[in-house]
Design a protein around this nucleic acid. Structure first.
Lengths: 110, 110
DNA sequence: AATCTTTATCGTAATATTGCAATATACAAA
DNA sequence: TTTGTATATTGCAATATTACGATAAAGATT
């Protein structure tokens, strides 16, 4: 127990869940917002923007990268990070689909 | 340790994270998809749709409800659940904002 | 009232996540 | 080569999540 029963769900369900889970932490939201705000790749100042220790930030960045929400490339002895549009678009499309479906549905029993 | 440092982030960051976290599990994605598919409130057949035991499903429903993604109302000795558009729209808007911002940005250094 | 049906809660075990100190790695600069 | 700077990894403690059996609660049915 304690383990998510991944095998019993579809690949799409698992992928969406993984994407959402990656965003499901305020530090990772903050990282995305910061990357968006500076409007560029960031080389180095992510740690100083967050109220967390460097290893913790590094771990959060890794999770965002694993799931395809950010990209990172080595730039000298720093690493440049920026948002990977693909992941964000996938989520946006998904919720867009839900919103559209809901709008078409007139039922509102609850 | 082990606890998210909620106090150090903004209310918006925490709220978005909570919403995303709630969707960050394939069972909860599956619940949302099912509610959407049947195009109505569901009274009773959610458990049978999922590969999980009844207490587990009940717990997932509670989480979705707490965060405002579904609504539930008592209907006889069953409970009717349906999607709460507000939460979904909040998430959709947020990702839409990111997508739009990204489109305006020409920078693509990574 | 006794029973059935449906959903919620409690208790608990297994696993995952969060956070950080310490340390490692990799490159730059002196 | 040594030193400095930036990021990653390891190891560990604290807490959270996931899942389910057992049981409770609430209304329906007989």
């Amino acid at each position: 127990m304690g383990t998510t029963k991944t095998d019993f769900f579809t690949a799409e369900q698992n992928e969406l869940a993984a994407l959402a889970k990656a965003i499901g932490h305020p530090a990772r939201i903050a990282i995305l917002q910061h990357l968006l705000k500076v409007n560029a790749c960031i080389c180095g100042d992510i740690v100083s923007e967050l109220p967390l220790a460097q290893p913790t930030v590094s771990q959060h960045l890794k999770e965002l990268k694993n799931v395809g929400l950010i990209k990172g490339s080595i730039e000298g002895n720093a690493i440049c990070y920026c948002i990977d549009a693909k992941g964000v678009e996938k989520l946006h499309k998904y919720f867009g689909g839900i919103v559209d479906t809901l709008k078409k549905q007139k039922i509102n029993c609850c």
